[in-house]
Simulated scan of single mutants.
Amino acid sequence: MEVIWFVVFALLLAGYFALEGFDLGVGLLLPVLGRTRANRDRMVAAVAPYVLANEVWLVAVAGTLFGVYPLLEHHVLFGLYPLIVAMLLCWVLRDAGLWFRRRLDGALWRGFWDGAIAFGSLGLSVGWGMILYAAATGFAASPVHPVGLMLGVVVTLLFALHGWTFLGWRLPGVFGVTRPGRVLLATALVAALPALGVVGGAMPYLLAHSAPPATLNVLSLMVLPFAPIMLGAQVWVWRTFRPGKDAVRLLPSFF
């Protein structure tokens, strides 16, 4: 049972990086590719249908982490408390930007919330790299370390690449590039590599510090039956809002 839950946790974390990675990547690219108001609207509208579905994976990761590996709760919530709070604020700021940017039509209003999306995406991307560094050291080192910051830069660049590829798939030719689905899948795997590398290296520790078998059995009965629902909802989102669907044209009026 410990191995099964380790695989579930690794897949959830990799899925979050692969899916939320292009959300954050598009946010990172707003100041670069969104030179005009129309282009910024296109970028936000392209990514908007996927945001909430992708964030569900983070909730699943957090629930699995604290349910299956309760001993890590102290290290994550208390050892990384300032960083976690900063990332939560960036998360709120990014999502607020997505929802509020079109509530008024002024240039200053739009510019402020577009900047909030870009800044929040940057903070989350760098923060994830720093958390991965802290996890790779067994939470023995501070995430505010040159290597941690370097890993944050690497994660940010990978997310930006993934976001650029997503735009090439979702809006072919609009930003000077067209990408098929298999290339998007490849960059998704690349975006998830840092998380998979850290979790793979921590496998012996995680298996040795799993919750008791009785707890894992209860979690299996309570959680695993809902996995097909989450996957089915994700498939529905991707099929509904794939390139060429008329529903895409409605999005700019809401985001």
Rank of each mutant, 00 (worst) to 15 (best):
D23Y: 11
S220F: 04
L216K: 01
V218S: 11
A141M: 09
A141T: 10
V177G: 00
A18V: 04
G201C: 13
A48F: 14
V61N: 07
G163F: 10
G27K: 01
G163W: 09
F166W: 12
S210K: 00
A62S: 12
A53G: 15
F175V: 03
L108M: 05
G129I: 06
L193V: 13
A10L: 14
L65Q: 07
V56G: 15
L104M: 10
T215F: 00
V174F: 03
G244H: 02
G127S: 09
I117N: 05
W99N: 07
V59H: 10
L104P: 07
E73S: 03
T64V: 14
L29R: 00
F175G: 12
L72W: 02
L29N: 04
G148H: 00
T240M: 10
V144Y: 14
A247D: 15
V26I: 12
A141S: 14
W109F: 05
M222C: 12
G152N: 07
H74N: 13
G201A: 06
G148K: 00
W5N: 04
R242G: 12
W57Y: 10
G79Y: 08
G63V: 07
R182M: 03
V7A: 07
F241C: 05
G152Q: 07
T137S: 15
V85G: 11
V177P: 01
V177R: 10
F226V: 08
E2K: 13
V248K: 09
A38T: 08
L65G: 08
V47Y: 05
H75W: 10
L224M: 10
L93E: 11
Y205Q: 11
L206A: 01
V51I: 15
G244W: 03
R35E: 15
L158P: 14
L11V: 13
G129K: 06
L171H: 11
S125P: 15
V237K: 07
D105T: 09
H75D: 15
L98G: 02
V218E: 12
A118M: 02
W57G: 10
G163Y: 08
H74I: 07
L124R: 04
L207Y: 07
I84E: 11
G138P: 11
N54C: 04
D105A: 09
W238L: 12
G123V: 04
R249G: 08
L33F: 09
G120S: 05
W99S: 05
H162C: 03
D114C: 01
L221E: 12
F9W: 03
G21W: 06
V51Y: 08
S253C: 06
G173K: 01
W164K: 08
L89G: 15
G129P: 14
G200N: 01
D41Y: 05
L28R: 09
L219G: 06
E20P: 03
Y133N: 10
W238S: 10
T187F: 13
R110I: 04
A135K: 03
L52I: 03
A188Y: 08
P243E: 09
P31Q: 03
F112H: 02
L219M: 06
Y16V: 03
Q234R: 06
A107Y: 00
M43R: 00
D23C: 13
T178C: 01
G200D: 02
A211H: 03
V147P: 01
D105K: 04
W113V: 04
T178I: 01
D114G: 06
D105F: 01
Y133V: 02
L19F: 15
W57N: 12
M150C: 05
P228A: 00
V147N: 01
D23K: 06
